[in-house]
Amino acid sequence: MSTLLEVSGVSVTFDGFRAINNLSFQIGEAELRVVIGPNGAGKTTFMDIITGKTRPDEGRVIWGEKSLSLLGLSEAKIAQAGIGRKFQKPTVFEDQTVHENLLMALQNKRGWLRVLFYRTSTDDLQKVEDLAVEIGLHHDLSRKAGELSHGQKQWLEIGMLLAQEPRLLLVDEPAAGMTPQEREHTTDLLLQAARTRAVVVVEHDMEFVRRLNCKVTVLHEGSVLAEGSLDHVTSNQDVIDVYLGR
């Protein structure tokens, strides 16, 4: 399995506070990975670095077969390169319909002139329909996203991510605030997605992590503490000390 993303030796300091400390991380194509860690372990900052929101003080972030360095690229360019991100809180465009939300996310040219003269093709419409079915929102296509329930918004956002057809999905706490049924659906969506692309999930909920049943990376104070299967890391004494034991 070839490596899709390689983060090596990355450090970030905020006002003297070391949020990320010599962090190294790798993920291959079509792999599902869960990142766990206590509050302040640097999970969100880690995602910020990959998506270009935060520039690290040192280290390398290498992407894809062509070994493209992501440092120095704008957020938009990184997204176009094939990295999709889902935020902790559902961030969909509430003032627009589900259809518009999905259409905006659909993998297409992003230049403003292309977008200005864009005409919806039947192909694209079909893609939107398919996605809506997949995320269970095909009855709500013409509703405004703001009217959806919390869980539906989460799915819509996952749907938008899928529409982007990214090669790497970064998902931040997808199951927070969901009912058990909704969680199940979310799990299915993520597992489905991970068949064709790399997915990194940040999660607190151990039950949810167990259900995803994949390799786990534990972050602590900005660096990797342990890596392996969930059973492996939960039996690690260090992990128990800093995280589970608390």
Binding site: A76, T91, Q96, Q164
Partner: peptide, 24 residues
């Protein structure tokens, strides 16, 4: 059109549009 969809997206959540790959 879709352009309107994108600029309204920028109005409501600039960062999200950026992470969708649009150069805000």
């Amino acid at each position: 059109g879709k352009f309107g969809s994108v600029i309204r997206g920028i109005r409501d959540n600039e960062a999200r549009v950026r992470f969708l790959g649009y150069s805000v």
